[in-house]
Simulated assay, not measured.
Amino acid sequence: MPVSESLARNCYHPADKAHITLRPVLSDEQIALLEKICPAGLFRRDAAGKVNVHFQGCLECGSCRLVAGDTALAEWHHPPSGTGLTLRFG
């Protein structure tokens, strides 16, 4: 089963407020790293080249925090109780 199909089986209960925020200025290297490391593909550039974080589909794995840390992320924490990801197996 492709990863995209497996991820589609999960249930997402997004919070109203983002639990991941980026620093105002990021280098191209930092952006490329975030785009590459996130298994859910949450970090994407728009047509103007600005990076958007689509936090609603976050797997809460912390990969972005571990790899980019404080140099790229202004904030990262788990979403509030009752929101976030519910994994579904099978």
Rank of each mutant, 00 (worst) to 15 (best):
T21I: 08
L22W: 04
R23N: 15
R23L: 13
R23K: 15
P24F: 06
P24S: 07
V25H: 10
V25R: 12
V25I: 10
L26E: 01
L26I: 11
S27G: 05
S27W: 02
S27P: 00
S27N: 03
S27C: 08
D28A: 15
D28V: 00
E29P: 05
E29C: 06
E29M: 08
Q30T: 02
Q30I: 01
Q30F: 05
I31G: 02
I31T: 12
I31Y: 03
A32Q: 15
A32I: 10
A32R: 12
A32E: 15
L33A: 15
L33M: 15
L34W: 09
L34G: 10
L34F: 06
L34V: 00
L34H: 11
E35K: 08
E35I: 05
E35N: 06
K36N: 12
K36S: 14
I37S: 02
I37A: 09
I37V: 15
I37G: 01
C38M: 04
C38R: 11
C38Y: 06
C38D: 11
P39Y: 02
P39Q: 09
P39G: 05
P39V: 01
P39I: 04
P39A: 00
A40V: 02
A40I: 02
G41H: 10
G41F: 05
L42I: 06
L42C: 00
L42P: 03
L42W: 01
F43M: 09
F43D: 10
F43E: 07
F43Q: 05
F43I: 01
F43S: 02
R44K: 15
R44M: 09
R44Y: 03
R44V: 13
R45W: 02
R45M: 09
R45C: 07
R45D: 03
D46Q: 11
D46C: 05
D46M: 10
A47D: 14
A47S: 13
A47Q: 13
A47I: 13
A47M: 12
A48N: 11
A48M: 11
G49V: 02
G49T: 08
G49S: 04
G49H: 07
G49N: 08
G49I: 04
K50H: 13
V51G: 11
V51W: 07
V51E: 09
V51D: 06
V51P: 10
N52F: 10
N52H: 15
N52S: 10
N52V: 09
V53T: 00
V53Q: 00
V53W: 07
V53M: 01
V53D: 03
H54R: 13
H54V: 06
H54N: 14
F55G: 00
F55Q: 03
F55R: 01
Q56K: 13
Q56N: 08
Q56A: 14
Q56W: 07
Q56C: 03
G57W: 13
G57R: 14
G57V: 07
G57N: 14
C58N: 03
C58K: 02
C58E: 01
C58R: 03
C58Q: 01
C58Y: 04
L59E: 00
L59F: 02
E60K: 06
E60A: 12
E60F: 08
E60P: 03
E60C: 14
C61I: 11
C61P: 08
C61S: 12
C61F: 10
C61R: 09
C61Q: 06
